[in-house]
Amino acid sequence: MYIKTLLSALAISAGTLAQAGTITGYTDLTSFATDFSSAVTEDFGPSSAFPISTGVLNSATSLATSSGGPINPGDIVDGVTFSTPVGTGNFFNIDGGGGFNGGFLDSLGTSDPRDLTVTFDVAQTAFGFVTNTLMSAFDITINFVSGPSVTQSLTATSGGLEFFGFASSATDITSVVIDGTGSGAFNFALDDFTFTNQPVAPVPLPASLPLLLAGFGAIALTRRRQKS
């Protein structure tokens, strides 16, 4: 048995969810992986490489960094672009440590506020990531193919890693904006960014329901014959 909660349990009000159909929130990576077995995960490699001076990180990135190794084409998975406005210093980094496994994506310091935009090459059904108190409180905005965006404030309260996942009932998520509110040490800090355009699996009918429906059909047919 795994944990799966509606986004309302993550403090997202039902009124903000209407345009995207049913949106489900996940607080457990294992349950997310169970529902979306074809999901792709970007783990940002085993070690640090910073700063990302262009403000753009994707599968085409070819960049020498002043600390750590270079970022080569193919180091980041296909299908997604991570970006933030260009700044100075360590404004956009793959860092190591901080309670994360291997490298994690971050913007150091909150005196220069900035957000992270995650843009998908094609619309996705679901996405998620892990974070911790290095980012702590953050606002997340989910953009769709059509209709208004959904924006909500969430908080990582544990020193360990916490998973935040989001799934739409349609394959309509085009981009995500993650904006740390300054309560942590980083504007944003996250790892294991996972995404998929795998359709949501239909809820299976109870084993007795098809027989029950067949019975209703037989009754209706009998009544029609009796009337004739």
Score class of each variant (00 low, 15 high):
residue 176 V to A: 01
residue 155 T to L: 02
residue 163 F to R: 03
residue 206 P to K: 04
residue 192 D to R: 12
residue 174 T to I: 03
residue 182 G to P: 05
residue 198 Q to A: 04
residue 167 A to L: 07
residue 171 T to V: 15
residue 184 G to R: 00
residue 150 V to I: 11
residue 203 V to C: 02
residue 175 S to K: 15
residue 205 L to K: 05
residue 173 I to L: 10
residue 180 G to S: 01
residue 197 N to A: 14
residue 180 G to R: 01
residue 189 A to F: 00
residue 205 L to E: 09
residue 155 T to W: 02
residue 155 T to S: 10
residue 182 G to K: 00
residue 146 S to Y: 15
residue 161 L to P: 09
residue 148 P to Q: 12
residue 185 A to Q: 08
residue 158 S to L: 10
residue 168 S to P: 04
residue 150 V to M: 08
residue 161 L to G: 08
residue 203 V to Q: 08
residue 157 T to I: 09
residue 187 N to C: 12
residue 207 A to G: 06
residue 181 T to R: 07
residue 201 A to V: 14
residue 160 G to W: 00
residue 191 D to P: 05
residue 189 A to R: 07
residue 197 N to P: 04
residue 208 S to L: 12
residue 207 A to I: 09
residue 193 F to Y: 06
residue 200 V to I: 14
residue 193 F to C: 05
residue 186 F to A: 11
residue 165 G to D: 06
residue 188 F to R: 01
residue 198 Q to N: 04
residue 175 S to M: 04
residue 177 V to G: 11
residue 149 S to P: 15
residue 197 N to L: 04
residue 172 D to I: 07
residue 202 P to K: 06
residue 200 V to C: 10
residue 205 L to Y: 08
residue 206 P to V: 02
residue 168 S to R: 03
residue 163 F to E: 02
residue 207 A to E: 12
residue 203 V to E: 07
residue 173 I to C: 13
residue 158 S to F: 05
residue 192 D to M: 11
residue 207 A to S: 11
residue 194 T to K: 06
residue 149 S to Y: 15
residue 196 T to W: 09
residue 192 D to T: 14
residue 198 Q to V: 07
residue 189 A to W: 02
residue 174 T to K: 13
residue 174 T to H: 13
residue 202 P to F: 13
residue 148 P to T: 10
residue 152 Q to H: 02
residue 165 G to A: 06
residue 186 F to I: 11
residue 187 N to W: 00
residue 190 L to G: 06
residue 177 V to W: 06
residue 195 F to T: 01
residue 189 A to G: 07
residue 191 D to H: 03
residue 193 F to R: 01
residue 154 L to P: 05
residue 197 N to I: 09
residue 194 T to A: 05
residue 164 F to M: 09
residue 203 V to P: 05
residue 184 G to Y: 00
residue 152 Q to M: 01
residue 186 F to V: 05
residue 208 S to T: 12
residue 189 A to S: 09
residue 161 L to H: 08
residue 184 G to W: 00
residue 179 D to N: 11
residue 179 D to L: 11
residue 206 P to F: 03
residue 191 D to S: 08
residue 202 P to N: 10
residue 173 I to R: 08
residue 158 S to V: 03
residue 169 S to V: 01
residue 150 V to Q: 06
residue 175 S to Q: 09
residue 173 I to P: 00
residue 201 A to G: 14
residue 149 S to K: 15
residue 170 A to W: 11
residue 182 G to D: 00
residue 159 G to E: 05
residue 168 S to M: 07
residue 184 G to V: 00
residue 146 S to N: 13
residue 181 T to P: 02
residue 171 T to G: 13
residue 168 S to C: 07
residue 147 G to M: 14
residue 166 F to G: 02
residue 162 E to V: 01
residue 151 T to D: 11
residue 172 D to H: 12
residue 208 S to F: 15
residue 190 L to D: 04
residue 170 A to K: 14
residue 171 T to S: 15
residue 181 T to G: 05
residue 146 S to W: 09
residue 185 A to T: 12
residue 199 P to H: 05
residue 185 A to K: 10
residue 146 S to A: 10
residue 165 G to Q: 03
residue 146 S to E: 14
residue 199 P to G: 07
residue 163 F to Y: 07
residue 174 T to F: 12
residue 175 S to W: 13
residue 179 D to H: 10
residue 201 A to E: 15
residue 178 I to M: 14
residue 157 T to V: 08
residue 191 D to I: 04
residue 178 I to V: 13
residue 157 T to H: 14
residue 200 V to S: 13
residue 184 G to M: 00
residue 205 L to A: 09
residue 183 S to V: 13
